[in-house]
C-alpha cells in the first residue's frame, strides 16, 4: 500500500435481506485507489456498482468489511456525489443548488458566494444562476450537479452514471468539461458507468465487475496521454482492441446472468 492511497476498501460485502431471501449485491470487494486517480467501474446493470457507490457515499452501510477514505484536511468533507440530473433540487435556483453543500457546512457567506460563483462560471451557467431547474435543459441540469459537487471541495468525488440520461452530443461535451475541471482540481474520482467509451475516455483505470454477486474481476490501466478526446480514443488501435476485450467480457456477464 503506497503512502498516497486515498480510498481503501477491504472485503466489502453487502447483502440485501428480505423475507427469507437474501441477495448478494457485492461480494468481497477489496480495492485501493490512489490520490488523484480517476477510476471507472464498469459493469452490466444490476451488478451492484451503484450499491458500492452508495456505500462510499454514506447512503448505505456495508454488511461486512471496511472502507477508509484518507483525509488531507480536517475541515474538508470526505466525499460528495454527482447525482444524475434529476438530483438537482427543483425548488432551489441554480445558485442555491450549487451552494447547497457549502451552506450545510455553515461556511461564511462570502466564501459560499465566491466558491459557488466560481464553479457556476466553470460550467458556463453564470447567465442562469438565478433560474429554477425547470427552465434548464438536461445537460444544464447535469452541469449544476457537477458544479455542486466540485464546489463542496470534498476529498473524493463519486459519480453515479451522471451522463446516462443525456443525448450523445451533450454527453461528449460534458465529458470533456468534466475532464477539464478535474484536470484543474486533481480530485480522486470514482465513476460508475455502463458505457465502455465513456470509461476509456475518462479513466486512468477501469475496474470490470461481474454480475450478481458483484465482484471486481478485471482491471485495466488506460495510460493514454491527457488531455484526451473522443477522436483520439476512437482512432487508437490499441484502444480498439481493449474495447472489444471489455465488450466481450460484458457480453459474457450479461448472458451469464440470464442463463
Amino acid at each position: 500500500m503506497s503512502s498516497n492511497t486515498k480510498i481503501e476498501l477491504d472485503q466489502l460485502t453487502k447483502i440485501f435481506y428480505k423475507r427469507n431471501e437474501s441477495v448478494e449485491a457485492i461480494k468481497n470487494i477489496s480495492l485501493d485507489i490512489e490520490d488523484g486517480e480517476f477510476v471507472c467501474i464498469l459493469g452490466p446493470s444490476g451488478c451492484g456498482k451503484t450499491t458500492l457507490l452508495r456505500i462510499l457515499a454514506g447512503l448505505e452501510t456495508p454488511s461486512t468489511g471496511d472502507i477508509q477514505i484518507h483525509q488531507s484536511e480536517s475541515e474538508k468533507p470526505l466525499q460528495s456525489m454527482v447525482f444524475q440530473e434529476r438530483g438537482v433540487i427543483p425548488w432551489m435556483t441554480v445558485e442555491e443548488n450549487v451552494a447547497f453543500g457549502l451552506k450545510m457546512r455553515h461556511l461564511p457567506k462570502k466564501e459560499i458566494k465566491e466558491r459557488s460563483d466560481y464553479y457556476i462560471k466553470k460550467v458556463g451557467l453564470e447567465k442562469f444562476a438565478k433560474l429554477y431547474p425547470k427552465e434548464l435543459s438536461g445537460g444544464m441540469k447535469q452541469r449544476v450537479s457537477i458544479a455542486r459537487a466540485f464546489a463542496n471541495d470534498p476529498e473524493i468525488l463519486l459519480m453515479d452514471e451522471p451522463f446516462a440520461a443525456l443525448d450523445e452530443q451533450n454527453k461528449f461535451i460534458l465529458q470533456e468539461e468534466l475532464l477539464n475541471i478535474w484536470a484543474e482540481t486533481k480530485k480522486t474520482v470514482l465513476f460508475i458507468t455502463h458505457s465502455i467509451d465513456e470509461a476509456m475516455l475518462l479513466s486512468d483505470r477501469i475496474l470490470l465487475m461481474s454480475s450478481q454477486p458483484g465482484q471486481i474481476v478485471k482491471e485495466k490501466k488506460i495510460d493514454l496521454p491527457r488531455p484526451r478526446t473522443m477522436e483520439s480514443i476512437r482512432s487508437n488501435e490499441e484502444m480498439a482492441q481493449e474495447f472489444v476485450d471489455i465488450w466481450q467480457h460484458l457480453q459474457k456477464e450479461v448472458q451469464g446472468s440470464r442463463a
Binding site: 454514506g58 456525489m81 447525482f83 438530483g87 447547497f100 453543500g101 455542486r148
Partner: peptide, 17 residues
C-alpha cells in the same frame, strides 16, 4: 422523491436543514 433525500444526506444536511 428519494433522490432529494439522498442529496441532502450526502451533502451533510442535519435535521433542521
Amino acid at each position: 422523491d428519494n433522490i432529494y433525500v439522498d442529496v441532502a444526506k450526502n451533502y451533510g444536511a442535519n435535521a433542521k436543514h
